[in-house]
Design a protein around this nucleic acid. Structure first.
Length: 561
RNA sequence: GGGCGAUUAGCUCAGUGGAUAGAGUGCUGGCCUCCGAAGCCAGAGGUCGCGGGUUCGAAUCCCGCAUCGCCCGCCA
């Protein structure tokens, strides 16, 4: 409906141009939904913008704009007003609003979808946790936000691929292998020093036990087999931990289209690259572009020539490459695979990597705006008003699976989605566990279940929803809520464009609240069968929108609770 | 020292150029013989961190300052 009005105003301004010698038309006509009802259903500030150019008072311009609105388009308005400094406020006819309600039921679970993305291929990379331990709350937030962004983009008409990038190369993996091996040795009474920066969690010991069960003492050191043994531990631990990560994500309702292994994809020699791997191929490309420099025995990417404040090492003095080079190769590969937009969900501690990665893309000749990085701030777990401190290195952290077990998937996801990504999030375990009105998740689910319950009641009295008497919906709160329901697709688009799922979470709370207020104030099932059937139709639409919204958030919409 | 983010009601947070700044929670007091009280209603509670600037208009944009978190590795 917003677009309709935008079009009408645009037509009017176009008409004005020919009669008033305006040279440049504003490219975008801003139409907003005012906060206050008395300012109409939609309003525009166009007169304020144009006033200066025309050398007229804003209110005079507003009048001109109104008078130039196309005749045939005006029928949807009850009235159009000039207000305040020169705002134009549009009031839509109730009849128009009510008649649009049938679209909700017509589209059903598709209501909310749109073609904004026009099927554009887009990749969302998220979680990408190192397979060196269990997922914690930071990963949980990342996973939930990434998954929900993917859902929303899909609904907005993009062709989305969800990808998990497995960091299974490099020093971290070596440390993992060695840590496990040391614990394995301990099981045979051999006590050597754990690597500094190694992994100390209990789960490392458990993995070592498993290896012992499987292999006995076969991995114990003989000079020749040492490296192989550690390598075995590394691979075993990696696979085991990845399996656990995958299980946890499934419990959170998150699944991926693609698991992209750094080791397999970037380090493996390929025939089409003349037995080169993607990693060294990209290095050569950068070299040909004169974007690299030898210095202090290492190879540097000259990021400072491409917008970053400093250069970065991509090949270390010992000849091994840094993960940054892998990152460049990986993102280059994403583009080669045909993705037009790359979206990464990263922890905020990686923010400095955004600039250098964009610098690399620019060096390779791409428009860096194809890469959008959503940075997720930290999660603080709070119990009884106290922060639960965590240390990953020492292995003393609360895992995601522990919290899911405690509060359930729905609460977990919703709580992690309630805040904008760039704000720190306090996860209050006590509040999360309350099964009462204090808990916003139940508030929304309750609205859905309550509507289900009204329908059961209606069936007993042989009443059913009907669109035949929608004109009986005359209460202001009915009209207001219908408008909110109709703007749901717009809401989804807005969340998609701003990559901000929390907006949808807030919207759901609002719609649930509208319903609860309505329910308390009015009888849905009454002695008037026509009115009853109209109201049943109305609340059935509310139910559909709540269900669709919750589905996008990955939260269940129970019929009973 | 440099960078990114944050600073809005007692607490947790929405609100990125519009009109009288919102929600949840907490506090006080009300509402179930009536479709589910996991609900509703009323009340109290804010110089939008501070100081400048931009303009018809600033919580929102720009500059400076303060406080908090994170980052600044030839780790990932």
């Amino acid at each position: 409906m917003k677009e309709e009005i935008q079009k009408l105003v645009f037509e009017s301004v176009k008409n004005l141009r020919s009669t008033n010698n305006i040279v440049d038309l504003p490219t975008e006509i801003e139409i907003e939904i005012p906060k206050r009802r008395e300012f109409g259903d939609f309003s525009t500030n166009i007169a304020l913008i144009l006033a200066k150019k025309l050398g007229k008072k804003p209110r005079e311009v507003a009048e001109l704009v109104i008078n130039n609105l196309p005749e045939d388009g005006r029928t949807i308005f009850k009235r159009v007003e000039i207000a305040g400094a020169g705002f134009i406020n549009f009031f839509i006819k109730e009849e128009t609003v009510i008649n649009k309600l049938v679209e909700v039921e017509k589209l059903g679970e598709k209501f909310g979808e749109s073609y904004l993305g026009r099927g554009e291929k887009i990749i969302v990379e998220f979680v990408s946790a190192n397979p060196t331990g269990y997922l914690h709350m930071g990963h949980a937030r990342n996973a939930t936000v990434g998954d929900t962004i993917s859902n929303i983009l899909t609904a907005a008409g993009f062709d989305v691929t969800r990808e998990f990038y497995i960091n299974d190369a490099g020093r971290q993996m070596e440390l993992l292998g060695l840590s496990v091996y040391r614990r394995y040795e301990e099981l045979f009474g051999i006590n050597k020093e754990m690597p500094e920066d190694g992994y100390y969690g209990e789960y490392i010991k458990e993995i070592a036990e498993k290896i012992k069960e499987k292999k006995g003492n076969a991995l114990l050191e003989t000079e020749s087999s040492h490296e192989e043994s550690i390598d075995f531990c590394k691979k075993y631990a990696k696979n085991k931990l990845l399996e656990e990560i995958r299980k946890d994500l499934i419990d959170l309702g998150v699944s991926f289209d693609s698991w992209y292994s750094e080791q397999d994809e970037l380090y493996k020699p390929l025939k089409e690259l003349k037995d080169d791997c993607k990693l060294s191929a990209i290095k050569n490309t950068l070299k040909e572009l004169s974007a690299l420099e030898d210095k202090d025995g290492a190879l540097w990417f000259k990021a400072s020539c491409f917008g970053d404040s400093q250069d970065w090492v991509i090949v270390k003095r010992d000849g091994s490459s840094t993960y940054f080079l892998a990152d460049i190769a990986y993102h280059y590969d994403k583009i080669k695979r045909g993705f037009k937009r790359l979206i990464n969900v990263w922890g905020a501690d990686h923010h400095s990597h955004v600039v250098r990665l964009k610098a690399a893309l620019r060096a390779l000749g791409f428009d860096e705006s194809c890469l959008q990085v959503v940075l997720i701030q930290f999660v603080r777990l709070v119990r009884e008003g106290q922060e639960i401190s965590m240390s990953k290195r020492a292995g003393s952290y609360v895992t995601m699976r522990e919290v899911i077990k405690e509060v359930g998937r729905d609460v977990m996801r919703f709580f992690l989605l309630m805040r904008s990504s760039d704000a720190h999030l306090d996860f209050d375990l006590d509040l999360a566990k309350k099964e009462s009105s204090e808990n916003p998740v139940y508030y929304i689910q309750y609205a859905h279940a309550r509507i289900g319950s009204v329908f059961e009641k209606a069936a007993e009295r042989e009443l059913s929803p009907s669109k035949e008497f929608l004109n009986l919906l005359t209460l202001p709160e009915e009209i207001e809520t219908i408008k909110k329901l109709l703007s749901f697709p717009e809401m989804v688009r807005e969340s998609a464009l701003s990559l901000a799922p929390h907006k949808l979470a807030f919207n759901m709370q609002e719609i649930a609240s509208d319903f609860h207020i309505y329910y308390n104030r009015n009888r849905i099932i009454s002695d008037d069968p026509k009115l009853s059937s109209a109201r049943l139709y109305f609340i059935s639409c509310i139910k559909t929108v709540i269900k669709n919204g919750l589905r996008l958030l990955g939260v269940s919409a129970p019929e009973r609770m």
